[in-house]
Design a protein around this nucleic acid. Structure first.
Length: 132
DNA sequence: AACATGACGTATT
DNA sequence: TAATACGCCATGT
């Protein structure tokens, strides 16, 4: 291949959309995996999930992945909270109440203002600590 | 192509 | 602790 062809190739690559549909799906799958890894009774922030998925500073993408997640996947979406430890939904909304109920069902404590504490007692692993 | 939106995060006051 | 402002990133208009 001559230099011109090489240049064209590089340019074409640079102009090509970096994220086509399959790439987006790949990102979502990494995010979904990270969420699935949250142990019962534990919680994690959007930012943490993003980092764990290898996508630092993409907390908002995590939110999108959650919306797009099929119900059949049965992800522990309720264990994902905002960085301040509160439920991301509008307080009082149907989704908010659903999430609160799921968390309490796992032993987590949900304060009136929406602040969540992971279930006490759980495992002693250092890994688990990262999630609490 | 500019602008608005969102299940977000961090720094500042 | 709370309110505000600004940054960030993908999407939809």
């Amino acid at each position: 291949m001559d230099g011109e062809a090489l240049k064209r190739g590089v340019r074409a690559k640079a102009q090509a959309p970096v994220s086509d549909a399959s790439d987006a799906t790949a990102k979502f799958e990494r995010i979904w995996s990270a969420i699935a890894a949250i142990p019962p009774g534990g919680v994690a922030s959007y930012g943490e999930i993003a980092r764990r998925a290898g996508l630092p500073r993409r907390a908002r993408l995590v939110a999108q992945a959650l919306r797009a997640a099929p119900e059949a996947m049965c992800l522990p979406w309720h264990r994902v909270l905002r960085a301040d430890g509160r439920i991301a939904f509008t307080p009082g909304s149907a989704s908010f109440r659903r999430q609160k109920r799921l968390l309490e069902g796992e032993g987590a404590t949900v304060a009136k203002n929406g602040r969540v504490s992971a279930a006490a007692g759980g495992s002693d692993d250092l890994d688990a600590l990262l999630w609490r």
